[in-house]
Simulated scan of single mutants.
Amino acid sequence: MKTEFALELVLDWGRSLSGFAADHAVEAVRGGQYILESIQPWLDELNARTFRDPRDETLILAFYRELALLFWLDDCHDHDLIAPEQLAAVELALAQEAPRAPSGFESCAAQRASLAQLAYDRRDYIQLLDDTRRYCGALRAGHTQAATGKQWSYAEYLDNGVASIAYTNVFCCLSLLWGLDMACLRRRPAFRQAVWLISAIGRLQNDLHGCDRDRSIGETDNSVILLLRRYPAMPAAKFLNDELAGLTRMLRRLLVEEHFPSAWGALIDAMTGIRTHFYETSRSRYRSDGTGSTARTEPPA
Score class of each variant (00 low, 15 high):
residue 193 Q to P: 03
residue 292 G to S: 07
residue 22 A to Y: 00
residue 129 L to W: 09
residue 159 D to S: 15
residue 43 L to G: 01
residue 109 A to T: 10
residue 43 L to R: 00
residue 188 R to W: 12
residue 127 Q to I: 06
residue 181 D to F: 01
residue 276 T to R: 13
residue 90 V to E: 07
residue 141 A to V: 05
residue 279 Y to A: 01
residue 234 M to L: 15
residue 267 L to M: 12
residue 150 K to H: 14
residue 272 T to Y: 10
residue 153 S to G: 13
residue 139 L to P: 01
residue 60 I to N: 04
residue 180 L to A: 08
residue 73 L to H: 02
residue 187 R to L: 12
residue 150 K to F: 12
residue 76 C to R: 00
residue 109 A to E: 15
residue 285 R to D: 00
residue 260 F to Q: 04
residue 11 L to F: 05
residue 86 Q to D: 13
residue 228 L to F: 05
residue 146 A to C: 13
residue 95 A to Q: 12
residue 125 Y to S: 03
residue 32 G to T: 03
residue 296 R to V: 05
residue 182 M to Q: 09
residue 28 A to E: 08
residue 236 A to C: 08
residue 96 Q to K: 13
residue 155 A to I: 11
residue 176 L to I: 09
residue 148 T to C: 07
residue 130 D to W: 11
residue 100 R to G: 06
residue 192 R to Y: 05
residue 17 L to S: 10
residue 270 A to W: 09
residue 1 M to K: 02
residue 112 R to W: 10
residue 214 D to R: 00
residue 89 A to W: 07
residue 5 F to I: 09
residue 284 S to L: 03
residue 299 P to V: 06
residue 280 E to M: 15
residue 147 A to I: 05
residue 290 G to W: 06
residue 219 E to F: 08
residue 256 V to R: 10
residue 241 N to Y: 11
residue 3 T to D: 09
residue 216 S to W: 03
residue 117 Q to C: 13
residue 258 E to N: 02
residue 87 L to E: 07
residue 66 E to W: 12
residue 134 R to Q: 14
residue 250 M to A: 14
residue 141 A to C: 08
residue 43 L to I: 03
residue 4 E to C: 06
residue 209 H to Q: 08
residue 51 F to Y: 12
residue 142 G to I: 03
residue 296 R to C: 07
residue 178 W to E: 00
residue 234 M to C: 15
residue 282 S to A: 04
residue 253 R to L: 11
residue 18 S to G: 15
residue 114 S to P: 00
residue 161 G to Q: 01
residue 77 H to N: 08
residue 145 Q to S: 11
residue 83 A to S: 14
residue 70 L to N: 06
residue 95 A to L: 05
residue 48 A to R: 10
residue 105 F to D: 02
residue 151 Q to N: 11
residue 183 A to M: 05
residue 289 D to Q: 08
residue 74 D to M: 01
residue 200 A to M: 04
residue 201 I to V: 14
residue 165 I to A: 04
residue 125 Y to K: 03
residue 90 V to D: 02
residue 3 T to S: 10
residue 296 R to L: 06
residue 109 A to W: 08
residue 173 C to G: 07
residue 68 A to C: 10
residue 30 R to S: 09
residue 251 L to V: 03
residue 21 A to C: 15
residue 92 L to D: 10
residue 152 W to M: 07
residue 114 S to A: 14
residue 134 R to E: 14
residue 67 L to Q: 11
residue 5 F to G: 04
residue 301 A to C: 07
residue 291 T to I: 09
residue 259 H to M: 05
residue 213 R to S: 13
residue 296 R to H: 06
residue 130 D to R: 14
residue 272 T to K: 09
residue 257 E to T: 12
residue 129 L to R: 13
residue 174 L to Q: 04
residue 170 V to T: 12
residue 218 G to L: 05
residue 262 S to G: 14
